[in-house]
Simulated assay, not measured.
Amino acid sequence: MTVWDVRPVDKQDEKFLENRDLTAAACGEVGWHYRVYGGGSSVRRDNLRWLTAYRRQMPWYPNAKEELLGICREPRATVGAVLDADHGAGHLVSAMWHYAWTGAVVIDLNQPIDRSTPVRELQESL
């Protein structure tokens, strides 16, 4: 069991640090782990916020998934390759964002996403 405390680094004041130490000690007494998450970068936050719009399964996603994953299996596959294969229809692009949300497609969310951003299939999704 892990208890997470979420507080941006710039808001971790003295009171928070005192409570952190008490909570960590209490967790240790019962054999639990205690972690503090100070937040990610603004780029990661913005990318995750973008992906939340695609968290719900749409009816065309299962049909688009195999084509999308085929593109992602290509060496040096990129977001641009998915955009080009979509031909403006939107089914592959929205499926890419959805499967990035679910983790079936891997995109580095710590970097700004553009056409040159690599995409790959998560190997466990096979």
Rank of each mutant, 00 (worst) to 15 (best):
G28V: 05
E124T: 04
A100L: 00
T78L: 02
A81I: 00
D21Q: 10
R56I: 04
T23F: 07
Q12M: 15
N47H: 05
C72A: 15
R44W: 09
K65H: 10
G28C: 06
E124R: 08
I113V: 14
Y37N: 13
H87Q: 14
G40M: 07
R115M: 07
E66Y: 02
K11A: 15
I71V: 07
D108V: 03
D114R: 07
Q111H: 02
I113D: 01
G39S: 03
V79A: 04
A25C: 07
G38V: 08
A53Y: 06
C72L: 01
V43W: 05
P112H: 10
E29Y: 03
A85H: 02
W60I: 03
A81H: 04
A77Q: 02
R35Q: 12
R55P: 03
L109V: 04
Y99H: 13
H98V: 12
D86G: 09
T102L: 12
E29R: 05
S94N: 15
R115Y: 10
Q57T: 09
G39Y: 05
P8L: 13
A53M: 08
H98I: 09
V105A: 02
R20Y: 09
T2N: 14
A85P: 04
W32R: 08
P62Q: 09
L126H: 12
V82Y: 00
L69A: 01
R7I: 06
K11M: 09
L48G: 06
K15T: 10
Q57I: 08
P75R: 06
E18F: 12
W97L: 15
A95I: 07
Y99C: 02
A81L: 06
L122C: 13
R73T: 02
P112N: 10
D108E: 12
V36F: 13
K11S: 13
S125E: 11
A89T: 04
A89L: 14
D84T: 06
N63C: 06
G31C: 09
D86E: 09
V93I: 14
L48N: 12
A24M: 11
V3T: 11
P62K: 08
K15Q: 14
E29H: 06
T78P: 00
T52D: 14
G40V: 06
D5Q: 13
P75I: 01
T117L: 04
V30L: 11
N63L: 15
A95Q: 02
I107N: 00
L22R: 12
D84E: 15
R7W: 00
R49Y: 09
G80H: 03
E121T: 02
D21V: 02
G70R: 14
R20F: 09
P8T: 10
T78N: 01
T23P: 01
G28W: 04
Q111P: 01
K15S: 13
E14S: 12
P59A: 14
R44S: 13
R55M: 14
I113Y: 01
F16L: 05
R35F: 11
W101D: 02
P112W: 04
R55T: 02
A53K: 13
V106Y: 03
K15W: 03
W4Q: 08
